[in-house]
């Protein structure tokens, strides 16, 4: 190329989208949403033998406002879903989500009354990791896969997210339960009482209004 010949070796020509994605993918800041056993494997991934720092993702931050990758490690139960959604909404764009382990991805062995059968029913997920719990190598592979995805699809303004306006998870299980057997959802949030057939997703404003019931002072 003539332009590169003209600029010499020290200057590199690329697209803005590519350079932004390249920066983002190599400095992922994970937010470890570690609830159960997978959290220990997540710690092992960060510890000496597996060392997630080799992939530029070692800066675990427990404050969602400083992170761009949420790793949901472990099962999420009904009392935890509002917390999970609230933390997800607090994270700044662009952000990605890894669902680590069988329980987070599908409920795993816990097909019981309280365990959510896969967080993707209520939250967009980018990479799923199988295993109970997954080995640290699998988590590293997921990070590599996510980096690949960011490089392929990423745009500097994050416009690739705008197209994802439909829920991406499986069909809500609530529709399979007869209406007369359903009971009101737990949690002090009025908007989510019962899934009405036909309205699969609520708006964010509704959700935030509902989540405001979660503040600490109500409990004491």
């Amino acid at each position: 190329m003539a332009l590169e010949d003209f600029l010499g070796d020290n200057i590199f020509v690329t697209k803005l989208n590519d350079i932004a994605s390249w920066c983002r993918k190599n400095s992922l800041w994970p937010m470890p949403f570690a609830t159960a056993c997978c959290g220990i494997e997540l710690m092992a991934t960060g510890a000496s033998k597996h060392d997630i720092a080799r992939f530029g993702a070692e800066a675990f931050r427990f404050s969602p406002r400083q992170c761009d990758l949420m790793i949901v490690a472990g099962r999420v139960v009904m009392k935890m879903v509002p917390v999970l959604q609230r933390i997800w909404l607090q994270m700044p764009e662009p952000k990605w989500c890894i669902s680590m382990g069988a329980c987070a991805s599908s409920g795993g062995v816990f097909d019981t009354y309280s365990v959510v059968q896969g967080i993707d029913r209520f939250l967009p997920v980018d990479v799923y990791i199988p295993g109970c719990p997954p080995r640290p190598e699998q988590l590293l592979q997921a990070v590599i896969d996510l980096q690949d995805k960011i490089q392929r699809t990423g745009t500097v303004l994050g416009s690739e997210f705008d197209r994802r306006i439909r829920p991406e998870g499986p069909r809500p299980l609530a529709l399979e339960v007869p209406q007369e057997l359903q009971i009101v959802a737990p949690g002090n949030y009025a908007s989510s009482n019962r899934l009405v057939p036909g309205s699969c997703h609520n708006s964010q404003a509704n959700l935030l209004q509902g989540l405001s019931g979660l503040k600490g002072e109500n409990l004491s």
Partner: peptide, 27 residues
């Protein structure tokens, strides 16, 4: 309800899926 009573179904009564769904475009 009281879930460990024998007449409570193991898979519950729909309480585990009564949550709003977030799409990626919403946040």
């Amino acid at each position: 309800g009281h879930p460990l009573r024998r007449d409570y179904p193991m898979r519950g009564k729909g309480e585990r899926h009564n949550f709003p769904v977030l799409t990626r475009a919403e946040g």
